[in-house]
Design a binder for these strands. Sequence first.
RNA 1: GCGCCCGUAGCUCAGACGGAUAGAGCAUCGGCCUUCUAAGCCGAGGGUCGCAGGUUCGAUUCCUGCCGGGCGCGCCA
Length: 586
Amino acid sequence: MKQEIEQLLSAAVTRLTGTLLPTPPAAGTIVVERTRDSANGDFASNVAMRLAKGAGLPPRTLAQAIVDALPASPQVLRCEVAGAGFINFYLAGDAQAQVVRQVHELGDAFGRNASGAERKVIVEFVSSNPTGPLHVGHGRHGAFGASVANLLAANGWLVHREYYINDAGRQMDILAASIWLRYLEACGERFTFPANGYKGDYIRDIAANLLQRDGDTLQRPEGELFGNLPPDEPEGGDKDEYIDALIVRARSLIGEAGFRTVLDLGLAAILADIEQDLGEFGVTFDRWYSERSLADNGAIDRALHKLAQHDHVYEKDGALWFRATAFGDDKDRVVVRDNGVKTYFASDIAYHLDKRERGFDLLLDILGSDHHGYVARVRAGLDAMGEPGSSLEALLVQFVTLYRGGEKAQMSTRSGEFITLRELRNEVGNDACRFFYVMRGNDQHLDFDLELAKSRSNDNPVYYIQYAHARVASVLRQLESRGLAFDGAQGLDNLALLTTSHEAAVLTALDRYPEIIRLAADNRAPHALVHYLRELANSFHTYYNAEQFIVDDAALRNARLALVLAVRQVIRNGLTLLGVSAPDTM
RNA sequence: GCGCCCGUAGCUCAGACGGAUAGAGCAUCGGCCUUCUAAGCCGAGGGUCGCAGGUUCGAUUCCUGCCGGGCGCGCCA
């Protein structure tokens, strides 16, 4: 409806161009918005105020001229000039009701549009280090990323969802060493576990699987392992030095192949756990992309070569530096350390180059807010390699603070460690989780109250929306039990009977849905959809309390049922984009 | 010190492109179940939109400077 009014205005302004208006208006000048107060009509435009100065006319005079030039439309009852020069549109009585017909015709597709124009976008999110289970912060990334990806797809983007596996580097070595040490413990060796090792119970589980699969083939006496090592932190040493020395020792004792066996087993186990966890959460990926593969297939060398070709690298202090400052970054960045090891940043730019080479127009990275410094670097890298840095868009997700009735509760009461996503899901349920995670904008800190998310009361917004959906289903059950059936044709033919103020409110809410889908995708703002769904549910609940749907008058009954079925459809469409279920009973 | 984000009702937050009387939930207070699910509805109170300037016909929104909070500024990943 909003679009149609914009078209009317555009036609009127075009008609005046050359006479009252010296030049055609710039794109984006003709804007129509919904009025906040129905006393000002249903829609309003400020176009006359924006064009008045250029035309050398008082805003109200120009506004009246535009109104006079508007083409006639069956949708618009009348329009008038108001205030400082607003043009207010009053819709014809049955114009709004046509949205019900649209919803019935389009079904699941209602609200989708083609604004993305089949551009290719890669959404990279979660990408947690595969060194342990996901915790509550990763859950927000998963829920947010999945919802943004769904919204983009609903707007006609070709969406690819990807998880970048940080399976190279020192953290992986520490993981492997930790597993091997727990394996030795399981073999009966006794020693003090390193301060910097991974201490979670899942490490013991993986070690137990290793023992079961490979027997004691990797066992070595602890004396050989710990002899002549630097002191660990509790002994006054440096925990990083200690664990690095331990890793070197482990490699020499069980060989590179043996070490790799342990590492791969651990990596596979943890990734399987993460994939299952996210899968149960309704978060899935088209590809799990291995960082290690970038080194193995030469992609990093190719990226570095590309930088060197364009003369954007130099040597200093034995290391190879990328001249990032030439591309707007704060400082130059090391890509190859003086010990010959390539930095994490080197694989990052290689990865992003690879994304471009795979043909993605938009690279959407969903990152923790603590990674904001990283964006300028990677953009600089892309520019230096001849790819537009502007194709990278980073969405920074702020931290999650868990509360349990008002008290901070970051730690699990059972294990004393960070609460995992799985624990959270088990406690509050997937629906409430997905919903609470996207209730706030990504750049807003999120207070996640466990008690509120669990409460099955009117405090809980997710149930409020689901309840509206279930109520419609309940109405249909009631209809059937009275021996009646919904006559869709009759309902859609009698939409003009939907005249109460409550029906008008529901119709307006339904009509807004396509606008919200567009807005939420353009702004990468799933929370806009959350707020909308609450308002739609509110208009429905109010209607439900005010009017009976199952009335004796068949024409009115079917018109009302057509309306509430449209509400059910739109709620279902919206919740689906958020990864939340739409139950028929509660 | 530099950079990014945030500051709106007692609390948690919406307010895209500058527009008409700044909204919602929770909390507080008062009403509504012999009628399709009360996980619901209706009503009331509650605000110098952090502060100070600037641009504009018009600023919560844009710009500048302060104040307060979070995060980041490695040859870590």
